[in-house]
Computed example of a mutant assay.
Amino acid sequence: MKRRTVLKSGAATTLVGLAGCVGGGESEQATTTTETETQTTTEETTTETTTQNELSGTLKVATYSSFVDAPSSSPGAWLKNTFEERHPDVTVEWETPENELNYYIQRASQGVDIGTDVYVGLNVDHLIRIDEKLGQKRLFDPVADGLSHYGHVKEGLKFDPQNRAIPYDTGYISLVYDGNEIQKPPETFQDLLKDRYRGDLIVQNAKTAATGRAFLLWTVNTVGEDQYLDYWKKLDDNGVTILGSWSDAYTAYENGEAPMVVSYSTDQVYANRQDKDLSKHQVGFLNDQGYANPEGMAKFADTDNPDLAEAFMDFLLSKRAQKKIAQLNVQFPATDWAPLSDEFEKYAKVPENPVTFTYEELQGNVDEWVDQWARQIAGGS
Rank of each mutant, 00 (worst) to 15 (best):
S72E: 13
D89Y: 01
T91K: 13
A62N: 00
E84F: 05
P71A: 04
R86C: 06
R86P: 04
S74Q: 05
F83Y: 06
V92S: 02
L79V: 14
A70F: 13
E85Y: 14
H87Y: 08
E84L: 09
D69N: 14
G57M: 01
W78I: 12
A70N: 12
L55T: 14
E85I: 15
S66H: 10
T82Y: 10
T63E: 08
S56F: 12
S65P: 07
S66W: 08
D69L: 09
W78H: 10
T63G: 04
L55C: 05
G76N: 01
T63W: 02
S66Q: 11
L79G: 02
P75F: 03
Q52W: 10
T82C: 08
K60E: 11
V61Y: 00
P71W: 00
P71H: 02
A70D: 12
G76Q: 04
A77R: 09
S56R: 11
T63M: 07
V61W: 00
S72F: 12
E85V: 15
P88Y: 01
E85R: 09
V61H: 04
A70H: 06
V68K: 00
G76H: 04
S66I: 10
T82M: 07
A62R: 00
G57D: 08
E85K: 13
T58L: 13
A70R: 07
N53Y: 02
R86K: 12
D89W: 01
N81T: 12
V61D: 02
F83E: 01
T82E: 08
S56G: 11
N53T: 15
V90H: 06
A77P: 06
E84Q: 11
P88E: 06
V90E: 05
H87K: 01
W78Y: 11
V61R: 00
F83S: 02
V61P: 05
A70K: 06
K60M: 10
S66A: 10
V68P: 07
P88A: 05
V92W: 00
A70M: 05
A70V: 13
N53I: 15
V92K: 01
T63V: 15
E84A: 06
S72C: 09
S72R: 14
T51I: 15
E85T: 15
D89C: 03
F83A: 00
Y64R: 01
L59M: 08
G57F: 06
W78K: 05
D69M: 04
K60W: 03
W78F: 09
R86N: 09
S65A: 15
T51W: 00
G76S: 12
F67D: 00
V61L: 07
K80E: 07
N53P: 01
T63Y: 07
S66C: 14
P71Y: 00
P75Q: 03
G76C: 10
K80T: 12
T58W: 04
T63S: 11
E84M: 08
P75M: 02
N53F: 03
E54A: 14
F67A: 02
T91F: 01
D69Q: 06
Y64E: 03
G57T: 11
R86H: 07
P71G: 03
V68D: 05
A62Q: 03
L59W: 06
Q52S: 09
S56I: 06
T91D: 14
V92Q: 02
N81W: 12
Y64H: 11
L55Q: 07
S73R: 11
E54H: 11
N53K: 12
A77I: 01
V90L: 01
Y64C: 15
A77G: 09
G76R: 02
E54K: 14
V92M: 06
N81I: 13
N81A: 09
A70L: 09
T58M: 03
